[in-house]
């Protein structure tokens, strides 16, 4: 396990580990945070974990793959920004309705 972690910048594993860690932290944030902004940050973290994975794989598959993956990453970041704009608009709408961004309040459909 230690060898695997310390196998240096020239192997895939450390990148994947960091990506997985980012994704997990993001997921955790989504599951436990009640604050809508925290939730959004969690989503961003998961997205970044995924992008990191894609770039890392590309890095070890030759030049063409590296370029492809980096372009994909740029696109994903752009899309994530757009999504964040919409999501923030939603959060703002929630705030106007409930005077709070606590997501546990947003369950009026339930009752």
């Amino acid at each position: 396990m230690i060898d695997f972690l310390l196998s240096g910048p020239e192997s895939l594993a450390p990148y994947l580990l960091v990506g997985a860690g980012l994704f997990t932290l993001g997921l955790l944030a989504c599951v436990v945070r009640r604050n809508a902004v925290g939730y959004l940050i969690g989503i961003e973290l998961m997205l970044n974990g995924g992008i990191l994975n894609a770039v890392a794989y590309g890095r070890f598959r030759g030049l063409q793959a590296a370029a492809d993956s980096q372009i994909l990453a740029l696109f994903a970041i752009g899309l994530a920004a757009a999504e964040a704009a919409i999501a923030l608009a939603l959060v703002y709408a929630v705030f106007r309705n409930f005077r709070d961004v606590d997501l546990d309040l947003v369950r009026t459909l339930r009752s």
Partner: peptide, 11 residues
């Protein structure tokens, strides 16, 4: 599974 809590949905 349908408790209305977004965190639970994500989980």
């Amino acid at each position: 599974f349908q408790g209305g809590r977004s965190g639970a949905y994500a989980g």
